[in-house]
């Protein structure tokens, strides 16, 4: 059953959006899939050595807010300075209390399970980043690299 293949494009760089690519690819590896994740644009943040991911309520009206904060600070209030850090702190605390792994842990599990991670070289150039900013054990490539793999994948996801 090791012949199934999962291909994911990770495009988002917030804490909440960091979970699906790492959860799905680590689980796929545990099920015997070959798994590859292509990190592009803001998703490339997820490969940084030091992660500083935040949650944001901006543009996310469905997000449940702790302590009825949405009543006190409707919509625009979520843009107040310090709000993002506070919400991130609360989210991380909640995750910990529910036994949810940190993004760092899940990423390590992916590396351990030989999930192949590809950083988008164009994004590295675009944001003036250096390969030194990113964790070891990853590769760099472009659209052709992704399609070369995803072309015959059983599951392909854009996240």
């Amino acid at each position: 059953m090791a012949d199934k293949k999962l291909a994911i494009i990770a495009t988002k760089g917030t804490l909440d959006w960091a979970y699906p690519p790492f959860i799905l690819s680590s689980t796929a590896a545990a099920l015997g899939y070959e798994a590859q994740v292509f990190f592009t644009f803001y998703g490339l943040q997820l490969l940084k050595k030091k992660l500083d991911l935040k949650v944001s309520a901006l543009g996310n009206p469905g997000m449940p807010m702790p302590m009825k904060m949405d009543k006190w600070f409707p919509v625009l209030g979520t843009a107040l300075p310090g709000m993002e850090s506070m919400m991130t702190f609360m989210m991380k605390r909640k995750m910990k209390s529910k036994g949810i792994a940190t993004v760092e842990e899940l990423r390590d599990l992916c590396l351990e399970a030989d999930v192949k991670m590809i950083g988008c070289q164009m994004t590295v150039d675009l944001f003036d980043l250096s390969r030194d900013d990113f964790i070891d054990g990853i590769e760099y490539g472009g659209a052709t690299t992704f399609l070369g793999y995803a072309g015959d994948a059983d599951v392909s996801l854009f996240i």
């Binding site: 680590s26 689980t27 545990a30 529910k98 792994a101």
Partner: peptide, 14 residues
Amino acid sequence: RGLNCPLPILRAKK
């Protein structure tokens, strides 16, 4: 016990 998705599966696989 106390672990959430996908950790129980990953630990079992290990």
